[in-house]
Design a protein around this nucleic acid. Structure first.
Lengths: 251, 251
DNA sequence: GCAACTTTTCAACAGTTGTTGAATTGTGCC
DNA sequence: GGCACAATTCAACAACTGTTGAAAAGTTGC
């Protein structure tokens, strides 16, 4: 819970790398571009460990020394690379967001193309919203699960939620809501946003991966089985949208 | 993020008051029973302030000095009344849980009686699950909103979620799932639990009251308007349950 | 009024926190 | 090999953390 405003006097390290210009059109590639990138093995390890610990214990529940220890690195190195603790937190949050937004955007474009003039169904839109989140098993990078749990922590936090989520995800979310508005003609915006709120909540709890559903169901359901979660979430949410926003088309 | 086990050597203060025996039948009254109760004005103020701050910033985001300062009380007083910081956290979490469980249980019994032999509909069951949470405006006690935000924080936390929620709410949640199983004949338990998971997630994000839906909808929806949230949540969730768990009866 | 008691404050502790300046190591270049 | 520079460690700082023992203030019963 930091209370100071951000000051711009940068003095020591290389710092977050001046706003990486990645608003290009197509390839937000994930393979690091070898040499030109501002990176090092230890720097990445700090990000990885911070990602995991922040996701599990929150911003204030993690110390820089725990992160440094987990990354097998001196404490000062985190400050050298990222500046303040809050800057490290932001760096972790922003590291994967562009790639994720790109993946979801492309998934929506894909179902748009597939559906043709009729436009995609509610199910197709929701599927495009959720399935890209399975990129943990796709890419084999287990860090994605930690990142998504961190997004869940932030989204559910009264302190971080509004400011951080809006800045990072509002643009993409509005893309999906626009698509849903078309798929559900006659729906009021109020209903549409409340429906999205419901879906976002269910998704958030899924990504948090707390293990509660495991205990509650006596092992019938596993909170870490995202595929099963989405299999159940897609028809569930589609039915909810249709109930509140008229019948809509398709399926 | 405390890492020590609980030790039973109680030495100084009066401590959490020996397990208040309130498993009686009917009246879990909220009016404090004047003299016999282990309470004082300052002790209650500590609980109130801790409730609000823990809900907003999480366990590690709040210091005992912030709580004491907010309650206009010396730091040591929190330790005197509650022992360790973690004991205070638990005391805050447990303070209102019995009353809430009772209110929800009675709401479920009420719709059971109202529905008669046919049994309550999915909508009625979900309504009985949600509406009692509006007791903030009913009782006029604004602390309820903070408490519910704290429950949301805990439920969404990988660290606290499983252990604390299960101990406090599993019994009641299973009552509702049992009722839903009856209202949705033929439903598999797996589907039933995943549906509950979806509803729980949407509810959790609602209770967290982060203000994100306000920003996203440009003010069309207000995250602090629980009544509107439940109005939209009840038909939404009922439709989702029916979609995944067969058609069911009623409405 | 004084004695037993609970409640509250005061003062201090040992340990931990984020941060930083200086020193050391590593790396590529000519 | 030496030079510039980035990466990393070392050592230390002032501030803050939860906790506690002792003292003070408040309350109750007689």
């Amino acid at each position: 819970m930091p209370d100071s405003e951000n000051d711009d006097k940068r003095k020591h390290g290389p710092m977050p790398a001046p706003s990486k210009t990645s608003k290009s059109t197509a390839s937000a590639g994930k393979a690091s571009d070898s040499k030109a990138n501002r990176s090092s093995a230890k720097r990445d390890r700090i990000l990885d460990v911070a990602e995991q610990l922040f996701a599990e214990h929150g911003y204030d529940g993690v110390t820089l020394r725990q992160i440094a220890s987990g990354a097998k690195v001196d404490v000062a190195l985190a400050s050298y690379h990222f500046g303040k603790k809050l800057d490290l937190f932001n760096a972790v949050f922003e590291r994967r967001s562009a790639y994720l937004n790109q993946a979801r955007h492309e998934a929506l474009e894909a179902v748009r193309e597939e559906a043709g003039a009729a436009g995609p169904s509610v199910e197709q839109i929701i599927e495009a919203f959720l399935r890209p989140l399975e990129l943990a098993q796709e890419t084999g990078d287990e860090g994605w699960r930690h990142y998504l749990a961190l997004v869940a922590y932030i989204n559910n936090s009264p302190y971080w939620g509004r400011r951080m989520m809006s800045k990072m995800f509002d643009s993409l979310v509005n893309e999906f809501i626009d698509a849903l508005r078309v798929a559900l003609p006659g729906a009021s915006d109020t209903d549409l946003y409340w429906c999205y709120h419901n879906m976002s909540g269910a998704l958030t709890l899924t990504l948090a991966d707390t293990g509660r559903i495991d205990a509650l169901s006596n092992g019938l359901c596993s909170s870490s089985d995202f595929e099963a979660a989405y299999d159940h979430m897609i028809p569930f949410m589609a039915a909810g949208f249709r109930k509140l926003c008229g019948t809509g088309n398709g399926a």
